[in-house]
Design a protein around this nucleic acid. Sequence first.
RNA 1: GGUCAAUUAGCUCAGUUGGUUAGAGCGCACGAUUCACAUUCGUGAGGUCGCUGGUUCAAGUCCAGCAUUGACCACCA
Length: 754
Amino acid sequence: MHVVRYNPLMDTRYTPHSYENDIYKKWEESGAFSADSQVQTMGEHQPFCIIMPPPNANDPLHIGHAMGVAVQDALIRFHRMRGSKTLWLPGTDHAGIETQYVFEKKLRKQGKSRFNFDRDTLYSMIAEYVDENSQVAISQMKRLGASADWDRFTFTLDEDVVTFVKDTFLKLHDDGLVYRDEKLVNYCTKCGTSYSELEVVYKEQQTPLYYLQYGPFELATTRPETKFGDTAVAVHPDDRRYQHYVGNTITVEGISSPFELTVIADEFVDPEFGTGVVKITPAHDHNDFAVWQRHKDAMPALKQVIGFDGKLNELAGEFAGLPVVEARQKVVAVLREKGLLVKVDDTYQNRVATCYRCSRVIEPLPLTQFFISVNKKDNSLAHTALKSLSAGQTKILGAGREKILKHWLENLQDWNISRQIVWGISIPVWYQVDGYESSVHVGFLTKDGVYTRGTLEELLTQFSIDEVVAGVQSVQAENTVPYVVSLEKPNGGGMYLAETDTFDTWFSSGQWPVVTLKTGKSDDFETFYPTSVMETAYDILTFWVMRMMLLGEYLTGRSPFSNVYLHGLVRDEKGKKMSKSKGNVINPLEIIDKYGADVLRMSLVIRSTPGQDRSVGEPDFKAARNLTNKLWNAARFVMLQIENNEGGDNTPHSEFDVKLTEVVRSITSHIDELRLGLAADELYNSFWHWYCDECIEQHKKGSLSTDQLLTGLTTFLILFHPFMPYITEVIWQELRERSLVKTNLLISTPWANS
RNA sequence: GGUCAAUUAGCUCAGUUGGUUAGAGCGCACGAUUCACAUUCGUGAGGUCGCUGGUUCAAGUCCAGCAUUGACCACCA
């Protein structure tokens, strides 16, 4: 073999690291990523747009992100080459609770906590921390080869985004879809915030079931420590055993002194369970709270005995100050001494609500919060979203998960959007506190940095209002305190305190497709909304996709995307879930270092199916690595043939063009119909087993012309480019140097005709 | 208790609207190779497509039931 001149293609192996950075730079400099560089021809293909699910601003990417980038970038590159005006809009998320949780962990290591800082200081500390780390995710996406429009990059706390999100809240409020009410919320006493129903993880466990002597009854409970908050006893209305007690007042021998309760009848009581008698603790149990709402006239007000610190309060007498678990043991011990404990069932299994973030037990606690009503009769957000699903305006690709989404929408409860953390968008609400000083609970840092809390009434005897405001950490106004929804502090003589809660992160990300396009370049919204595909993992279907549908419809009257492509979770090569404790986590960056971005992308996408988990491991990476090498060597062969002018007199093979056209047609339709796994698989096989095994061999035997061989190569480079952008572009550059192709960059080369 | 999904070669998985001898990667056996590529090439072994019925000229694909696994939801005092 004689070498005409030195060129990297003479290496028999493809080495991704020698090329990837340069190629990415070339793409960026060419402006190919920008939606503005493409002119939408009035042809057959509509504008194409994907809003990237914004990863957490300060976390490194995991392999699931790599899956997302691989799928989205493949679609984007395909549609761009096919001549659509194409936008892939990237961004990052402030990830309220996640970020504050991580940050507070850091503080703890320094022996500090959030209570050492006022709101503004804490917020800027977290902001600084996020700033320091926020380039990580972006640079990693670039290494993956993401051809996103970085000029349109958006962060969820960008000023115009924040303004937009607050305006949405105002609009919802004007439309009567926001209300404030005291309800039981899912509260994590460790994270110090409430959550929506979605963020609660239920765990099956054994919980002792205590049978207590309770006045004239025996009753079963798992939570004897809440008895200080009992406000009634309930039985089933048809239960003959207890019917004659209904409406009566009974006397219960308490721990210190006896107390009286009314017996009520409610359908929720299961006569078969326990003794058929239930103590009602409305402040600490969702069912009991519902009973209380139905029987308000027959029962006293809420009695909260567990505080937001997870400890019993003064109503618990001698047990005040004890954490819940400890208190339970002590209460049981005292009851046993007094002979009030009948028996204990240690085999009882139940489900306990835990925090998705820190795994601590979630306490249902009464808190006054802002809610969005999702099922209001004449203006139902959920109903509208359901209609677009049924009408097919939004299609869900993901193994039956459309039904899960519908089920959620049909049963959705009002959305609690208040979070008691600082890292987020503050809720634009002001409390008018004059005359309500005793109903406003404030925690703040004095000038000397001492954490102080109490009602405003108490605090104002020692401090000025300005001093309180300057050091404020939290304001908790009771349900009776009047409030104003407003971006600015209301005018007028009254004394106002700003709400300290922030929005649930999903409230802002739920507006993402709308807010990114509306705050972007002038006509982005008109051109690209509704977006074409929303691509994300199925585990945030309800958290995020559902909320985007609710709010997208509300804000624009249209569902925010035509297709939802739900990729599966990435598992290890044995199909096991990846976790740090198992030590089977694959770091995408390590795979890129070892094999290159193309290999990682291809091995994730090939033969993957929406909604189905994907398992990958070393054998898959090697297989994809071998494919890059195969492409490399096929290209070398073709170029060597041409340079050495060999095979020039070969005759054209008539079946070749037919078959190639069929390959192009098939791959094109697969990608167009979002069958990426199948497209990649077919591409792999037709390239390797047809083009390399058959066509190249035919050429060697003289029955396929060099022109056809070159056409085959360039066609396959085009078809492979969405899946393996780097190597295909490297080869394209080699062909271009030899004047074998006309366009400067493959990324901007028109798609193959079929 | 309800819903959804999965069950195809030793392993991990494809198989779009039902249509000839069911595919890939890895693994296995045997062989080849100065000729693009040993990150290669060729040949081969290996599957009653979970089970039982049904619809159809035709079923891995559609229907019903069952089994196993996983996920989601509901109840739980």
